[in-house]
Nucleic acid binder design. Sequence first.
DNA 1: GTGAGCGTTGCAATCGGTTGAATTAAACCG
DNA 2: CGGTTTAATTCAACCGATTGCAACGCTCAC
Lengths: 343, 343
Amino acid sequence: MAPEKRVTIRDVALAAGVSPGTVSRAMNDSPLVNEDTHRRIMRVVEELDYTPNVVARRLSLGKTLAVGVIVPFFTRPSVSERLNGVVSLLATSQYDLVIHNIETPEQRASCLTEIPFNEQADGILSISLTPTDAEAERLAEADLPMVLIDGDHPALKGVHHQVTVDDVAGGEATTRYLIELGHTKIGFVGDHHDNPFNFTSSRDRYVGYQRALREADIPVRAEYLEENQHGRRLARESARHLLALDDRPTAIFAASDTQAVGVLEAAREAGLGVPDELSVVGYDDVEIADILGLTTRRQLLFESGRRGVELLLQTLENPGTERVFETLPTELIVRETTAPPQG
Amino acid sequence: MAPEKRVTIRDVALAAGVSPGTVSRAMNDSPLVNEDTHRRIMRVVEELDYTPNVVARRLSLGKTLAVGVIVPFFTRPSVSERLNGVVSLLATSQYDLVIHNIETPEQRASCLTEIPFNEQADGILSISLTPTDAEAERLAEADLPMVLIDGDHPALKGVHHQVTVDDVAGGEATTRYLIELGHTKIGFVGDHHDNPFNFTSSRDRYVGYQRALREADIPVRAEYLEENQHGRRLARESARHLLALDDRPTAIFAASDTQAVGVLEAAREAGLGVPDELSVVGYDDVEIADILGLTTRRQLLFESGRRGVELLLQTLENPGTERVFETLPTELIVRETTAPPQG
DNA sequence: GTGAGCGTTGCAATCGGTTGAATTAAACCG
DNA sequence: CGGTTTAATTCAACCGATTGCAACGCTCAC
């Protein structure tokens, strides 16, 4: 009834007639305590409804029992799906999840430079962020287990795993698909390839796009590239430009499903039928793609998060683990927004 | 270069020629330290790149400097938007955000009964969860500041704020809108009103729906209510049933935008034109509603999260704060899926 | 009967801060 | 100039667990 103070290990010790140390050992199932004593202590623990103070444990163990997740724009469906994978697995472990969302370049900088050093986490998961060289250097110093999900840096030293997708290959294959359909005039709607967050996926997909065109001896036309900030609205504007060109593309490759939606909207505005007059293909395969029947390249978002945590937990258990670089496969999901060009 | 051990407060004290206590006070801007000393200490802090160990602070202060967020299915767009509001404000505070996602009824139970007691957080935010009477009782015992966002319990004692939406009123107003358009045959597609998560929003909106019908002297027909688990796919099935009725509804009110999308899909399958042959209205106004031109009732998702944190932080700063119950407004956003019934 | 060995348990230091009380030094005043 | 106030700092206990080491009681062997 009364706001009774929290039960500590000493209370238990007193009630059980042993020392705090023994209670601690009993709680942690140390083989050093007698079975009877163990049972007796556990009974008292039950009675008093004792749960160890996590903060004290942390200090004592020198471990925080938490992992930090650094994630930009976690409300974006693709990101949130990765995060979902992270959460799903982490929930089964003893580790807490501390979230650091990034919405501005400043936040990005401070997260990447401070979080790994302030001893708030035993390990770090970074989602969709690519460290710069300087950042990578500094991160290496922290020597904190870190896993990069959908983001890589070749020079990262120390215990750093990576779970990525080959965006160049994905972009190339997707573009090739359009070429095989017969398209030669293919537009690209993506992020700013030089951006303060150092997001690289759009840029890499464009590199793949160029590669596919070159392989097919199709010239890469500068006016077919539209860079913009991420988002449906802005992608719509980008697409408007493409569709207003004298020699407009017959297909548009959007760097994400979100942007593809903007492209679809622009097409509707322009009175262009999809896929007859314009083919549109996205990237990610989030739910909206299914809803709209968008052809897209699927990547394993949920799995990437899950696998990232798996690697991190492995490293935490067993610090000797070797670095792992994993590349997850992608898959083209053909729906109703792509077709051979007209005529 | 070497993996130098972490700098502690004692190192700083030594280097600055003072005692650890003084360093502590200097770090916390206590007026008890001389200005010169303060400056000197801060210089050393800079040089050694010292940052206080948060875990140790926590133990010492008896505060965790973290708030826990309990949230079911955080990948659902409406939920993630609320969470976004939470994160946006919390990022500016000194508090960390520890996430507890709920995907099963068991997780729900354990979160609601354990989290508030394991001293891992100074305060709790609960999103879209309605405690049962028994849970409310137990929660009151924890006497931990807690804010319910989109979830309420009239009997919650202690320092508990609530930020909710009046779902009954929202459901009623939305239904009235359809009635005013001329509809009398209005279907309802929602969650199971009796569900293991104790989600209440769909049920409440249905209560409002009934109320609106009664006020307009329109009989409430049992066959016009379709309950199902949450989700687009299942909502589609529910809608199929409604549309297959001999006397099918001319309008369908979905308890969420996600479910409304399922309804739209069912309409397309059935070859029914929207809005001419079938009106559809959703709830939430998440992005998909905008994309699809769905008429819906907007609630302030982001703001609810933000306001919830605001209240929690207020309480943490100033434990004497009075309880606040807030009801956020909703607004009908008319787009292209609603029209008067045919004929 | 004494010492070695084993299984248990207690003791006390430790993790890295915070904070109330004690202490010192400077300042002020009649 | 002694006494008292005031400011600045140190000291040491404390938060609540963990853990290496010492110590204890017992058994068994020689």
